[in-house]
Design a protein around this nucleic acid. Structure first.
Lengths: 204, 204, 204, 204
DNA sequence: GATGAATGAGAATTCATTCAT
DNA sequence: GATGAATGAATTCTCATTCAT
């Protein structure tokens, strides 16, 4: 299947081919992750993408690389959302709440991501690191603003908050009896200095 | 450990041997669970206990049986603690807080238990069920008392609370940067109707 | 449970105890063989008999010993039946047919016996040998009488016949679509020198 | 066996490699089946073929798939032989006899096939089904022709005959004292309506 | 003698990862 | 670069058999 006769054209096309392939891979992986979780068999992903397994390994040497890549776009969007200029009349606490809700949405809709993130299975550290690296600064900034405005306690580490929220999302999609968002509301309410700032919580 | 000096009791020895072995198994399993999580290879547990693999299967036909057995004592104690008569001058909310702290201690000291509990891996349902079956009534009662005393919101499901607390414990032992107990404090604070009831939180 | 105080009585009783035990074992094994075939787990037989597994091994060092023992009585009866004085007016061929029918009954009613007999699984040789040792002389005699009377071919080895009949019984109990006795009829009809001797065959 | 001299065909090589491997697997399986029966350990077959165990599972997801594959060619040939136009001057009974002889050859040369076929071990149903599915129609047709020509009894089920013949082959290869073909002759002779049609039987 | 707990070899099966083509 | 066949370690589970009590 190697078109050995036209090396010039083939060489130039390779670049875009590879890129297209990579995107197909990401899409396929995302799709499989939904059904089978982030630790789905590599072969399944390859099959879904219609490529060989070797191709996956070429593009993503470790599974974590793939997972990270799959979610990088959304991670970027999430980070951007946290640093955007808040709506007029939005308090820092409101902003924090809104961002946390987005964060929770992100985790909950990725079947098994929250779990994988917090498992100590080898290969997920870099995923964890990536996620923290991207989101911690955002969380920190939002939290600092709240504290500066006197709306929240000022003795909470952003990392704790991020991880706590993340943890609360574990099983949110799987267990129909568990209302993760309500628990997040509780956590955020507990974070507030003044009870009056917390709105009526969603009871789903 | 062989009590070679008392041959007279030989007749009753076999039974006790088996029992001792079972205990050794439980201890070994607990130990291995710390290193490798509750889904450690059966063989590792057998090796740690110094017995053959068949012995494990004899005592605990399924892995869940083993895990449940490992933690049943502590589960019993936990359930009992929640129904004990509170100290004089202890408010319902105080009682809830104390019990939750014990619950958290239980989960946190059992490496991987919290994670396994919330994974959807086959074979852990019964563990999950056992834990819920034992603790949910307790949690429900404590929560009802708090709500009746007007100290907490009355629209929170005991299951959500139990699961939320459980989730917050995930990774508490592994990740030195994560202060699960502080997050639990936040959650409980958010649960309180009146900020004044919440004591100064432990900062670990 | 050892009645250490009365050694004299115990010693005398042992003999009959052991014998009774052996019979219980045989009965239990026979019962289990019906459900689970002759290669049922040893433990199942022990449980059925209400004894420990060690007891089985004491009485029957190999599984074949047990199987042989289980069927020895019936084997004896079968051998005896073949050498009994025939009914008045019964031709040698009739006698052969009747005996073969008994033989088939024996095999067919012992779930899996026919199969085990002809498998080359280690441990069944002695069973095979026992069966052949007991039945071959009988078969030989019956066959010789037939041949002498000119009712059957005289070039057939008793062993072939015995084994052929045995083989035809494989699966007779399991497979409802297979009519082993009809095939045996065919085989015996083929053995006859004169078609007129063969009666109308049973179509079950 | 590496055709190192023809690099030009390298592009098409992979496919053929796999095919060659599959053939090696079939050969190896056939060889192992001879020694150890069709339920030989998977690993043994892999070792014999000089491949990893995974390779077997790739090609043949279940053991039955492998067994069926091993014998499909011969099964096909057998089925074809039964439906071929008979030689001139060959009576229907002759044709049946010839085909049965081929069938017996097939079973006898595949050590353990006959046994496995008639065992009720799980996983052999599909093998049994395959064989019956292929051969029953052929047998039925041959038998009907014989009956129509008045050469054989017309009250025999093809399935009984097929199974009976198959059973008679059990152990034919293993037991040097057992002359399965002679017993088959007897069975077929018994099937015949008229003794005169049966030729002098082979005494091996 | 009896017991049944313990043993551990053996078999099946799954997948991450490599590498010849 | 892509492919997917091959690999084989890892894991689970089952019993026949032994042996301390």
């Amino acid at each position: 299947m190697t078109t050995a006769g036209t090396p010039g054209k083939a060489a130039r096309r390779k670049r875009s081919d590879a890129r297209r392939n990579e995107q197909a891979l990401l899409d396929a992986a995302a799709a499989v992750f939904v059904h089978a979780g982030v630790d789905a068999p590599v072969r399944d992903i390859a099959t879904e993408a219609g490529v060989g397994m070797g191709t996956i390994y070429r593009h993503f040497p470790t599974r974590a690389d793939l997972v990270v890549a799959v979610y990088r776009h959304q991670l970027d969007a999430l980070a951007a959302a946290g640093t955007a200029v808040p709506q007029a009349g939005e308090s820092p606490y409101d902003t924090l709440r809104l961002w946390v809700a987005r964060f929770a949405d992100f985790l909950v809709t990725k079947h098994g991501l929250a779990g994988a993130l917090h498992s100590d299975q080898a290969g997920f550290e870099s995923l964890h690191a990536e996620l923290i690296g991207r989101l911690l600064p955002v969380c920190e900034q939002l939290l600092a603003a709240c504290a500066a405005a006197g709306q929240t306690r000022d003795d909470i580490q952003p990392y704790d908050l991020l991880r706590g929220i993340g943890n609360l999302c574990v099983g949110a999609e799987t267990d129909p009896n568990y209302n993760a968002r309500l628990m997040i509301d509780l956590l955020l309410a507990g974070l507030a200095r003044d009870r009056s700032v917390t709105p009526a919580t969603s009871t789903e």
